[in-house]
Structures are given as structure tokens and as C-alpha cells.
Design a protein around this nucleic acid. Structure first.
Lengths: 344, 344
DNA sequence: TTTACTTTTGTGTGCGGACACGGAAGTATT
DNA sequence: AATACTTCCGTGTCCGCACACAAAAGTAAA
């Protein structure tokens, strides 16, 4: 492994000059710069990251902006854990990670937390762009400050984000269709439960539904889908009543598809109704969902490995900040199929 | 973050003494050693790996012993790629990785390649213990030389291996049973194809079969299983003939279960036979198997993420060698379900 | 040619730790 | 008390790089 000193000797210059070329610090004549770059290429020179980050002592900071989580909405815990794991791995490179959390039901907190984030002067930002319009303003400020940013979990087109890390929504719905089809016998109908709330405003949910229904039409499988719209997930009794009446009015329903991460709520409701046997398919391996899987209330979950996504976001940003490694524009997580027999 | 210097100052000793304590180099009085260890604990002192490996310049070496791969048997390519990826990540820590490959059909190459490995004086070894008896001798030599070793993919009980990285075979068969059940309608039979060869001598295959059949008995599902034994996978015509006659004699067969990674071979045979529609379930996402998945010849593959396993083996060994981090005794890969809709 | 200034290059120090070496303190022997 | 050891501990150098500072070389104006 060649060192800077080696290169410098061979180019008949000092290490300082090589250093300047390596970091585009300027102040080097065209001629020597050319010679040095040639040698660098010839030997495929790689900086020794250990020595480099040891010497630099520059403290880079990555800031994250994620929805917060609580008992009811535990989904966002996983990405944060991934971020925390990655944080420990990169802190040795002199990289600090600071997390900001907002209430995904209150736009105002999104904006205020972003302001706090911006005030902390980060060198890179990981962001879950929950609100489309507000995100436009936000990224503008980031771009003004020349701060690179990565979208996590939710994608918004037309931004200059370094990368998007998440799921192929359409395909995940398509996969759900396949699994649902396997669970069903003969002719029957499937209920698709949609939750009307601002947070589902991102297109991911509708893309999942499209993928789901397309699976059946693409494969020429006749099936009736019944769309159920629910609003308040907290009012369990109202929910039960609503679901109960739908199931009663549609006795051919054999499958339930929930295109968001809340299937456990419905699974628990339906369990109590104890009508016909149903196959439930939903998304994300949250604790509650996994419990339902184990209790045979849910047949399949499709997970996007949120832990991994969080982890990756930090790693990619780190690689970009330290080594200027440009990540892929879209980093899609594999679609993981969870069922009773392969969880944990 | 406290440094050695900080600790030394607070203990009124020099950095050298702290260093001696940290590395158990001896030559420190009980009294001062106690004081220093107290401070180390109090501040939860962590060595700066960057500085540490930069200064040490000790070149640790990890050697691997895996079956080789070729056109017919491509499975072992994936772990090796994982190892190669990890190699790049750890070489900065001054760790070299050297790979040795043996012919999994020839015990003699296993032993001779091990000898070559041993001659290279590695500091840690990753090994796929394909042959049970010979492995007993091998690990003895490793233990004599105080070389830690990790079992990859195949587990052998009663050895002092640092860790085993692989799959829960029984559970993976059980999962296969579940998926097979989903694919089947009504009463029918399932053919289990076993390949008689010395390499399947490890218990993993039989555990998979046990898990598979247990799924049906545990869930009180009546199903008939037909065991087909094949020997030579190279003689395609003989294979076709054999499978063809079995299928003809057992017209109720609707599912085919192949408990090793060779399902593509059978899938291609059966395709040509074009008898009844069958659901095929097998293991491992090799190129050929994935092709069959895409061509709808195979319904499901259960993958053990061999790339990841290889990757992890190097990382775990590195952590052990550098930071003396003891890995878990058993590191089980999650059982990944692959189907047409979620590959790639 | 001298002076003033800009461009280009060299040098030195420190990041945190590993380890060789030498020296001080303590113990045993004569 | 002098000598010979052993035990214990401090110092200095180097690892490969970043960066501030100094110095040299080149250029332009007087």
C-alpha cells in the first residue's frame, strides 16, 4: 500500500503538495498536479482512512429528522435504532449524529424541528419528508447552505436529494397480491382497508393498492375488492362496528389487505368479531404486527427492513462526507416476507 | 472521549503504564494496576481503533476454507463474495484475508488445503466443516496453535468454535412445509427429492426434511409424501426418466420439495415432462434457482443469505481479533422467502 | 536591479496509541 | 555497603495523514 510519502518521493515533491492535490486545495502548478495525479492513478492510491480521520479531527455532524414514535405508532422506532447502531460505528470517524423528531400529525412541528436542525449546522441531513409542500421549502434552505440530504422511507420527486432509501411501493403491493392469492381458495372477495389521514398522503399507500389489485388483473384472477375507509383508529368500538357490518354485508370476504403498518389494530378487532376465517396481509414487522403473526391473526407481513434503512442512511451519508462516495439515487430495500414460521 | 493520556494523568502514571494494563502486558504492580483499571471502568474507556491499528502495524491474517464453486455448483460463490466485500472493509484495520478452496467431493483436498491454510499461519480461521470426521482432526490442530475458528454454514457439535454462522435447518424445512401447504389445494401428495451424495452427509438436509414433514403433522394436515432418491445429477436423461415414472405412478403429486440447493436441475427436468402442474419449493437463491423462479418453474425459494453469512464471518472474526469481542455461539440467519415477485 | 507581491512548494507538529528502550526503585546476595 | 538482579515505570519514536506556517520561486512594477 503506497502512502502519501511514497507518492511524494516518486514525484520529487513534498507530502504537502501531494496532500494539496488529493484534497483539491489549490495552489499547485498545473504541471506538478498532472504528474501527481498520474502517479495517484497508476498506483490506485487510496487514503488511509484511519490515519486520515485521526489527523483531521474535523467533527462532521449528521442530523436526522424523523417522525417520533410512541405506543400507538411504533413504526419509527426501527429506523431510529438502525441510525443509532450506525452512529456507534461512525463516531470513530469523528462523526456525530443528532436526531430531531417531529409529530407526524402536526405540520408545525415538522417545520420547527427542521429549524432546530438547521440551527445545529449539520454537514449532512437524513430526512423523512412526510409533508410534501413543506419539504419543498425545507430542501431549498438545505441547498442554499450546501448541505447534502437523503430521503428516508418517503420519496419526493424533483428534489436534489443525494439518495432515496426505501421500498418499491408498487411492487410490495403486487407481492401482497400474490400472497393473498395463495391464501384464498375459490372465488371470494378481498377487503382493502384504507386509513384516511394526512400522513398517508404520500403516494406510497396508493401505489401499494395499485400493485395489489394489478396482481389479480395481470394474472386474470377474478376477485372482488371492497374498499373500506376508516378514520379514527383510536375508537375501537366504532371500528369494530364498522368492520362487522361490512363483513356481514359481504359474506364472501375471505381476505383483508391493509396497505399501511396498522394491521394489528384491525386484526385485533376482527378477532373479536369471530365471523368467518380470514386471511390478513399487511406491512411492517412492528411489535404488535409480529404478535398478530404469532397469534395466527395475520397471515403475512411484508417488511421493508426499516432498521436497515436507518442504518444505511447514516452509512451512505458518512461515506459521502468522508470519501465523497456518491450513493445510488434510489436504494430499494428488498421486500421481506414475514410469516409465523420465520419471524425471529 | 477519554484518551490514554487522560487516564494516565489522572492515575499519576505515564501512558506506557496504562498501555501495559490495557494489553495485559504485565510488569505493573498490583496496586497501580487496580487503580488504572478502576479509572478505565469508570470512564468506560474505549481504545481508539483508528489510532490503535495505525500504530500497531501488526498484520493479522484471517484464512478461509470453503468448497470451491463452478458452473454446476454455484452456491459457494455467494459466501465468498460476502467474504470479499468484508475483506475490503477490514483491510484498513491491517487485516488480510486469504481464501483456500477445496473440492467438496474429495476429502483429500479438504485435508491438503487445510494444511496449506495452516502453513500460512493465520490468526483466525473461517471454515465450512463439510466432512465431519476430518474436521475433528483439523480443529484439534487449530486449537493446538491457539487459532480461533468459526464454522460457516455447516455446524458440528462438540467443537470449540468461536461461533457458528448459518441457518436453523429444521425451522427452514418447517417454513417450506407452510409454503408448500399454501400452494396446494385439496388432498394430494408431495414428492421429496433427496440427492444421495457424501456432501449431504451433514445433518442439515435431514433436519430440513424433518421440519417439512413435521409442519404437516403438527398442523394435522393429511398429506402423503413420496421420497425419491437420485444419485447422479449430471445424467439428465436418466433423471427425467426416473422422475417421469414416479410422477406417472403417483398422479396425485402436486408438490415437489427439494431440501438442497439443486432444485433448478429438477425444475428443468420436470418442465420438459410437462405432466400435471406442480408447485416446487427449494433452497438458496443461486442464479439458476432464481431463473427458475422467474420462469415460474419454482414457486418459492428459501434463502439463508449466504452472502451475508460470509460477510458476517469475517466481521465477527475481525471484531474478535481486534477488540476481543466474543461473538454469539450461534448466529442464525433469518429465513428469507424468495418468490417471483420479490427477487431483485 | 531592487522591491513588492503572488504563486508554488517544503517543513513541522499533532492526532491517539504501540512498543522498544532505558532508567528508577526495590529486593536479595556477598 | 557494594553488587547483582528483578520489578516497575517513564520517555521517545513512529504509524499515515491534515493543516498551519514558513520558505522558495516566479512575476510585475519601480
Amino acid at each position: 500500500m503506497k502512502t502519501i510519502k511514497d507518492i511524494a518521493m516518486e514525484a520529487n515533491v513534498s507530502t504537502g503538495t501531494v496532500d494539496r492535490v488529493l484534497h483539491n486545495r489549490g495552489g499547485v502548478s498545473k504541471k506538478t498536479e498532472g504528474e501527481i495525479k498520474l502517479l495517484l492513478k497508476r498506483y490506485n492510491f487510496k487514503l488511509n482512512i484511519m490515519a486520515s480521520s485521526l489527523a483531521s479531527k474535523k467533527n462532521l455532524k449528521i442530523a436526522t429528522l424523523l417522525p417520533d414514535f410512541n405506543e400507538e405508532n411504533i413504526f419509527w422506532e426501527a429506523p431510529l435504532m438502525g441510525i443509532t447502531t450506525a452512529r456507534e460505528e461512525v463516531e470513530i470517524f469523528g462523526i456525530k449524529v443528532e436526531n430531531f423528531a417531529f409529530d407526524q400529525f402536526k405540520v408545525s412541528t415538522y417545520l420547527s424541528q427542521f429549524q432546530a436542525l438547521l440551527d445545529s449546522m449539520p454537514d449532512g441531513v437524513i430526512i423523512v419528508p412526510t409533508f410534501r409542500k413543506e419539504t419543498q421549502q425545507i430542501v431549498l434552505k438545505l441547498e442554499q447552505n450546501n448541505i447534502p440530504y437523503i430521503f428516508l422511507n418517503i420519496d419526493i420527486e424533483g428534489c436534489k436529494n443525494l439518495s432515496f432509501i426505501g421500498q418499491e411501493s408498487y411492487q410490495s403491493g403486487f407481492l401482497a397480491g400474490k400472497l393473498m392469492h395463495l391464501c384464498l381458495r375459490d372465488e371470494c372477495s378481498v377487503m382493502i382497508i384504507q386509513t384516511r389521514s394526512s400522513i398517508d398522503d404520500n403516494h406510497a399507500i396508493s401505489r401499494r393498492i395499485n400493485g395489489f389489485t394489478d396482481y389479480f388483473s395481470d394474472n386474470k384472477i377474478l376477485i372482488r375488492t371492497i374498499n373500506a375507509h376508516t378514520c379514527n383508529l383510536n375508537n375501537i368500538n366504532a371500528l369494530k362496528e364498522k368492520l362487522g357490518s361490512i363483513l356481514k354485508n359481504n359474506p364472501t370476504i375471505r381476505g383483508v389487505f391493509v396497505p399501511n403498518s396498522k394491521i394489528s389494530v384491525f386484526a385485533d378487532c376482527i378477532e373479536d368479531l369471530k365471523t368467518q376465517t380470514l386471511s390478513l396481509i399487511g406491512f411492517d414487522g412492528t411489535k404488535q404486527n409480529v404478535r398478530c403473526l404469532k397469534e395466527d391473526k395475520v397471515s403475512f407481513l411484508i417488511s421493508q427492513k426499516p432498521f436497515k434503512q436507518g442504518y444505511k442512511s447514516i452509512k451512505l451519508m458518512t461515506n459521502y462526507l468522508i470519501e465523497k462516495k456518491q450513493p445510488l439515487a434510489k436504494v430499494y430495500s428488498p421486500l421481506e416476507i414475514l410469516t409465523k414460521e420465520n419471524v425471529m
